[in-house]
Amino acid sequence: MTRARREARVRAPWPLAVPAALATVFLLFPLLALIIRAPWESLPDLLTDPSTRHALWLSVRTATIATAICMVFGVPLAWALSRASFPGRDLIHALVTIPLVLPPVVGGVSLLLVLGRRGIVGRHLDNWFGLTIPFTTDAVILAQIFVAMPFLVLSVEGALSAADQRFEEAAATLGASRVTTFRRVTLPMILPAIGAGAVLCWARALGEFGATITFAGNFPKTTQTMPLAVYLAMEVDPEKAIALSLVLLSVSIVVLVALRGRWWNSRQAQGIV
């Protein structure tokens, strides 16, 4: 934990400086273009349009619910992966991160195969309870949980692995049960990581597109989230697509600001992920 040690800053030699500069331009220019080409005059109308409001509200609502569910299930999973011993732990550790690298549309297809009306589980839900998941807001949330949960799990698990376990051991020697130790000692230690993981998880859920359009479909107010609205607006009204994109860009910047302590300071960033 020798975070105080600072590295010396040097002038970058050109073989490193040129690609670094190009990479910076490449990453930032498209975002700049969004601002340059934004239809500023019609922006208020486009953004107050009821369809925009519905999409934004749906996105914020579903991403928040998805994040809450990810925390309820993801934090215990992260704890189990970091602290518990059970057979196949390494394998499960690898498997739960698959959605992180899996193309989201594949996630959507897989969810449909499990929870669709003819799916392995969905068939029974339909027959026994008359419950169908696809094309509902629940499906949007499930798709978001699928793609976003690994972000939370990895953040929290990283913090758990980096945390000093002697505190937990001390609590245990003083007679605290495992649950009490988790609640009173571990949880407070990793709270910042849970916060950061939740913000990442929320941002990922908010941006979810592929799994959503495949599994949840596309209907205003129930399943048409902001990314879907951007995609569909691009086909008829590119100006509206730009306006909606600006909203999502602003949200991303807010997320970045919220995480500034963790990402803008690269030393601390090693604590997460």
Partner: peptide, 11 residues
């Protein structure tokens, strides 16, 4: 003369 509310709109 049908008023149909679909569950989804395909792209």
């Amino acid at each position: 003369g049908e008023k149909v509310t679909p569950v989804t709109y395909g792209a």
